[in-house]
Structure formats: C-alpha cells, structure tokens
C-alpha cells in the first residue's frame, strides 16, 4: 500500500486504477469547454448573442465564455457579412488563435456572400476564401437552435481529434495572404 492509496478512505475505489486513452480525456475536456471568440460582424451576431444569453444559454453545452482575445479562444464564430475591408482583420484574428482552432461560418453572407453575391462589390464571397471553415450554418440569420446544432457538430469534430495528428489543420491550403 503506497501513500496515495492510504489517503483514499473509500473502500470501493481504494484499489481501482482508471485507464483511458489520453485522446479521449483531452478531447472530452476540450469539447466541453469551448471558448468562442467575441466576434460579431453584422446582424448574425445578434442571434449569436441571443444564443449566449439566458433563453438559449450556450453555457449548458459546455461553451459560452466568449473571450475578448483570440489568444484565449479555440472557436471562431464568423457571424455576419465579411467585407473586403474586414478581410485582413478576420484573417489576422484567425492567425492569432492557438491550435487546434475551429471555425463556424454562420449565415448566408459568410457561406457564399448571401444577398450580396451578385452586386455586392464590397463583400467577400464566402469566408472560406480566407480561412478554413469546419461547420457551415445556413440561414439569414440562423436561429439560435441552429447555432447550437453547429456547436454540437464542432464538439463532435473535437472528439475525433488525435493528439499526435497535426495534419487535419493543413488539409486546406492557405489561399489568402493579407497585405
């Protein structure tokens, strides 16, 4: 009997050793404490705020502390129209986030330009021209339930992560270099 076992007074768990794949442990912690970046570009951000507020309550699902800096975030919810003027800023925020990082494209504008697809000279026709996107949520804007569903999809992706596999991020080439 070593020192640790002596300190445990519970006879049932006294001699039990808990074993699990390290991936599962890390992924479970990661998927249940998703920290999104505080980041809203247009009207979709209103729905994102509603998702975080009391009625839809993002915190129930192991997410919610919207961080004020990309360095503390692992999820970027691109909520709203990405303009050409904003594009370098979005790209820079994404680059500042630590790996592994995930991106949700929320709403029609972010997916393919939405209503601006033909005549919107100032709109980037899809944020995936700038940064790799994991989950697309259509809608104009999507309802909070849709954003929650998108978050679950991201959590599923997180649970598939392998700690030694660093290739998933690099499958999509960087297409855009800001000036």
């Amino acid at each position: 009997m070593n020192e640790i076992e002596n300190r445990n007074p519970d006879p049932l768990t006294k001699n039990v050793i808990f074993m699990s794949a390290i991936d599962d442990v890390i992924n479970a912690t990661r998927a249940n404490s998703v920290w999104p970046l505080t980041f809203g570009l247009a009207c979709c951000a209103i729905e994102m705020m509603a998702t975080g507020a009391a009625k839809y309550d993002l915190d129930r699902f192991g997410s919610g502390p919207f961080r004020g800096t990309p360095r503390q975030s692992d999820l970027m919810i691109v909520a709203g129209t990405v303009t050409h003027k904003m594009a370098p800023r979005v790209k820079r925020l994404y680059d500042q986030m630590p790996e592994p990082k995930y991106v949700i494209a929320m709403g029609g504008c972010v997916i393919r330009g939405g209503p601006y697809v033909k005549h919107g000279y100032h709109v980037v026709k899809g944020v995936d021209l700038l940064i790799p996107v994991d989950v697309y949520i259509p809608g104009c804007p999507p309802r909070p339930e849709a954003l929650l569903e998108g978050l679950f999809k991201v959590q599923k992706l997180m649970k598939r992560e392998k700690i030694l596999d660093r290739t998933r991020r690099t499958t999509k080439p960087e297409v855009y270099q800001p000036v």
Binding site: H84, A87, P88, R112, K118, V124, K125, L129, Y176
Partner: peptide, 16 residues
C-alpha cells in the same frame, strides 16, 4: 458605370 473588380488583394470577388 462602376464595374466591381474581379478580385481584391487576391480574394476572388466573382463567384458566378
């Protein structure tokens, strides 16, 4: 008579 650019700083501006 404005014609939007085909791309801006390397970002494609025309999808269709």
């Amino acid at each position: 008579d404005y014609e939007p650019p085909d791309s801006f700083h390397g970002i494609k501006n025309v999808i269709y």
